[in-house]
């Protein structure tokens, strides 16, 4: 894979490079006080995701009708879906973080789904993006925990009803499991997206390589696999949002 890191199209063989789709292109190079803030293809698809999500949610609610239109009921469905998720997992006092969870879910869902459009770019297939999102969740949750419980939040790492000698073992485990949360959260989403898209690309290459006679089998597989990928795109956004809710609940109520 290292050899294909800077490889453009087709490095020699007839197969296209499956990792090429993850390449970052600087569309408008911007240098912000020595920091590379270029508008890249990733930025472009983030912007498209923003426009799609905000545009859909705002335009579909234009009528504000009591009996919703089709688009309006989809917007309301998304709202109720996340609102119930937050209410069930965090409780009613967690509803003040509802806009954040909703934004997180809709952004990841839009990026995942837009990634399924041919020739597009999957923003969430980059570990740095998913890690950025997970870091915001992790830092935010930790800050909320310390604000609500003060130093008492450290008790979160001390399981109750455990004999003292065991604590020497359990506290580091709790601490490590807490600190690996952003890693697992980000790697789960990134790995799912990248693996799926790489698979699609590899099998897409097979379709072309096997030609008119043999290409049907990988094509059929790709059709089925595309369906699975759409499911994964939704599921990963859902998982990300649910885990955010669960972490929020831990920080707010310290149930252990």
């Amino acid at each position: 894979m290292a050899s294909t890191e800077h490889g453009g199209e087709q490095s020699g063989g007839s197969m296209p490079d499956p990792m090429h789709q993850f390449e970052i292109d600087r569309i408008i190079p911007i240098n912000f006080f020595g920091l590379d803030a270029s508008f890249t293809n990733s930025s472009k698809w983030m912007l498209i995701a923003l426009l799609v999500v905000a545009g859909f949610l705002i335009l579909s609610m234009r009528g504000r009708s009591l009996v919703p239109t089709r688009a309006q009921s989809v917007a309301e469905l998304a709202y109720e879906f996340i609102a119930n998720m937050v209410r069930d997992n965090v409780g009613t006092e967690g509803m003040k973080y509802f806009p954040f969870v909703f934004t997180l879910f809709m952004f990841i869902l839009a990026c995942n789904m837009l990634g399924m459009v041919p020739y597009s770019f999957t923003v969430t297939s980059h570990i740095i993006v998913t890690f950025g999102l997970a870091a915001v969740v992790f830092i935010g949750v930790t800050v909320i925990g310390f604000i609500r419980h003060g130093v008492g939040f450290l008790k979160f790492f001390v399981p109750s009803g455990v004999p003292a000698p065991m604590l020497a073992l359990l506290v580091p485990i709790e601490l490590i499991s807490y600190l690996t949360r952003p890693v697992s959260l980000s790697v789960r989403l990134f790995a799912n997206m990248m693996a799926g898209h790489t698979m699609l690309k590899v099998f897409g290459g097979f379709v072309v390589a096997l030609g008119f006679l043999g290409g049907w089998a990988p094509l059929a597989f790709m059709v089925a696999f595309t369906g699975l990928e759409v499911l994964v795109a939704f599921l990963q956004a859902y998982v990300f949002a649910v885990l955010t809710c669960i972490y929020l609940n831990d920080a707010m109520h310290m149930h252990h």
């Binding site: 803030a37 890249t40 990733s42 930025s43 983030m46 923003v123 993006v129 950025g132 999102l133």
Partner: peptide
């Protein structure tokens, strides 16, 4: 990393 994080 930088351009992606900034735009994110």
């Amino acid at each position: 990393f930088a351009p992606q994080l900034i735009w994110l």
